[in-house]
């Protein structure tokens, strides 16, 4: 019951907080053309550039191979793990979710490996250590905690999956089912609640932020199309 309330609250903060941020990003003007060049000269080209950035972490690949492999492993693992969790929220379970279900344990392992790599880098590379705040370590440990509790339920202390599913379906239909016992599942869900709760207030905003980054999402066509926004005064109306 309490856990249901916490999860609802966290989700509410997440939706409102991230929605507000996205609105802010979208409504703030970009007065000048500043794509990092060479940049695509067409909208379609920009879609491709963004897709490569989102899916392959193109720029990070250019920058640092260790950071790239660790963060890509983590994010890919996270995506697969999230999709696999759909089996708790769909009834009957969608076909493709069943299909990828066997991948979930590998996804969890990929997350832990990637996050641990990033954490070690943060601790042992002097440059990265210098720029790290306490929250940077805590964030990694929080997500490691989420992945680890998930994996433990899988490999060690099994949880009553059927009951968890009842609980999840209850959440979906706004019914407060009681969560089956087990400290691991409670811990897992609490950590998830913390993560989505801090999302709008933390560097996790890099997820929506990337899509609004002018250096990546602008088309390189300033000579062909005049870029005008309200912040640059029109000289014709200059007093």
């Amino acid at each position: 019951m309490i856990i249901s309330v916490i999860l609802y609250l966290a989700a509410l903060v997440f939706v409102i907080g991230v929605g507000r941020k996205i609105y802010q990003y979208a409504s703030t003007p970009a007065p000048l053309k500043i794509p990092t060049t060479p940049a695509p000269t067409t909208r379609g080209g920009v879609v491709l550039r963004m897709a490569r950035e989102v899916v392959l972490f193109d720029s990070l690949f250019k920058a640092s191979k260790p950071t790239w492999i660790f963060s890509w492993l983590f994010h890919a693992g996270l995506l697969v793990a999230l999709l696999c969790h759909l089996r708790y929220f769909t009834d009957p379970v969608w076909g493709w979710v069943n299909l990828i279900a066997p991948l979930s344990k590998y996804a969890g392992i990929a997350m832990v490996v990637g996050l641990t790599g990033l954490l070690l880098r943060r601790i042992f590379v002097d440059r990265v250590k210098t720029i790290s705040a306490p929250s940077d370590y805590l964030m990694l440990m929080l997500i490691i905690g989420i992945a680890a509790t998930g994996l433990l339920m899988r490999f060690g202390w099994h949880t009553d999956i059927i009951a968890v599913k009842q609980f999840a379906l209850g959440l979906r239909s706004l019914q407060f089912e009681s969560l089956p016992g087990g400290i691991l599942v409670v811990l897992h869900l609490l950590l998830v609640a913390v993560l989505i709760l801090i999302f709008p207030f933390s560097k996790l905003l890099h997820a929506p932020g990337l899509f609004f980054s002018p250096s990546r999402n602008q088309v390189d066509n300033p000579r062909e199309r005049r870029h005008v926004t309200r912040l640059v005064k029109d000289h014709g109306q200059k007093s």
Binding site: S64, S71, D136, L205, H206, G209, F212, P214
Partner: peptide, 11 residues
């Protein structure tokens, strides 16, 4: 966006 988004990855 730049002030919000940095994750201190070190790239």
């Amino acid at each position: 966006v730049y002030l919000d988004s940095c994750v201190k990855c070190g790239a």
